[in-house]
Simulated scan of single mutants.
Amino acid sequence: MDVVSRCLLSAQEADSLCAAAQSALTAQGSPAHPSFYEGLEDHFHRIPASIRHALRDLRESPTLCALHISGVRVDPERCGPTPLSWQAGLDDDRQALEEAQLALLASFLGSVFAWPTIQRGRMVQNLLPVEKDREEQSGHGSVALEWHTEDGFHPDRCRYLALLGVRNHDRVPTTLGTVHDLGLADDLRAVLRERRFLIRPDLEHLRQLAAYAPDSDMLRQARAMHENPEPVALLFGDPDAPCLRIDAPYTTALPGDDEAAEALAAITGELDRAQRDVVVGEGDVLIVDNYRAVHGRRAFRPRFDGTDRWLKRISVAGRAPAPAMAGAGTRSQAL
């Protein structure tokens, strides 16, 4: 079964996408801000037809879990060195053209949104190694990043996660596992479909909130979700075309539920067995269906000299297979 589709842009297609992004920049302003996405659909017709076709396939296919596009125009020299922290990239507009290309592709699939708890709600975010976070399970660490559904703890998590490679000299792979890879016995699947698991918020939400909004209601809500999570199922939806939800570092079985713990170990083992490596290099876009696939990252050794791996990230709300998504839009979302 083909679960990852490929789209290699010709020089003409890459130029056309870049021109569409430049037109959107001129009309809409910075992709870092919510206002960029208001009326952005007026620019969709400028996206080359082959790319629109590939994006529709991802959105409509019952089996596709990711789309890998190569050949997008990226100028690492103009973008500047890889920042040493996400804070350093908040107001840097040198990558606006690259961000606009990613924003166009992402917006074709649904409504772009951002959590105010991550990178101050910037709509296009920076994934890069940060020295003080090198051991963390986050986009700023450099240890192996374990399997996770993006924001798997939240009912309004994104439907699609879109990544653009600005720099990846070391070809550090993004890892990908899909719901179609799960060779599980029926009894284990039955357990995984029951609300016998807890998924706590990624600690990055709490760390960033505690740093800049220590007295906020959002931080209190995030802490409550961490301390008292609601039980959830890890497989859900149509039994013949199920959806998957997991965040390995933050997922546990209910206390004392040995059967659920066994099922949790089995599903992570199956994802490990079928792991795919996808290098998101310079000019590559990887769009992951966040309801059918999980992702991670291989460990790497950063240099912190401006040449490290640097990706751009966008979250996209869209119609989930089941249950329906709710509460997403083109402005920052609250926890």
Rank of each mutant, 00 (worst) to 15 (best):
V4M: 00
A11P: 08
A11S: 14
A11Q: 13
E13I: 12
E13D: 15
A14Q: 01
D15L: 13
S16Y: 03
S16M: 12
C18P: 01
A19C: 03
S23V: 13
L25T: 01
G29C: 05
G29S: 07
P34G: 07
Y37L: 05
G39P: 03
G39C: 04
H43T: 03
H43E: 00
I51L: 15
H53A: 13
R56Y: 05
D57F: 00
C65Q: 00
L67H: 10
H68M: 02
P76H: 08
P76Q: 00
R78S: 11
C79P: 09
D93R: 15
Q95N: 11
A96N: 07
E98V: 04
E98L: 01
E99V: 03
Q101R: 02
Q101V: 01
L102K: 01
A106L: 06
L109C: 09
L109R: 08
L109P: 09
V112M: 07
V112L: 07
W115G: 09
P116W: 06
P116D: 14
I118E: 07
M123G: 04
M123N: 04
V124Y: 06
P129L: 10
P129E: 06
D133G: 09
D133W: 12
R134M: 09
R134V: 15
Q137R: 07
G141T: 05
L145F: 15
W147T: 02
F153R: 04
H154V: 07
P155E: 02
D156M: 10
D156T: 11
C158Q: 10
R159C: 09
L163C: 04
V166R: 02
V172L: 05
T174R: 03
G177A: 08
D181G: 12
G183L: 06
A185D: 15
A185F: 07
R189S: 14
A190P: 11
R193I: 14
R193Q: 15
A210H: 10
A210Q: 09
P214W: 06
L219K: 01
L219Y: 01
R220L: 11
A222Y: 01
M225V: 08
M225W: 10
M225E: 11
E227V: 08
N228G: 13
P229D: 04
P231Y: 13
V232M: 14
L235D: 08
D238Y: 08
D240P: 09
A241H: 15
A241E: 07
P242S: 12
C243E: 07
L244T: 10
I246L: 10
D247S: 15
A248D: 12
A248K: 15
T251I: 14
T251V: 15
A261I: 14
A263T: 15
I267E: 02
I267C: 11
T268Y: 13
V278Q: 01
G281C: 02
D284K: 00
D284Q: 00
Y291E: 13
R292Q: 03
R297N: 03
A299Y: 01
A299S: 09
D305S: 05
T307D: 10
K312R: 11
R313K: 12
S315N: 12
V316D: 07
A320V: 06
M325L: 14
A328H: 14
A328W: 14
G329H: 10
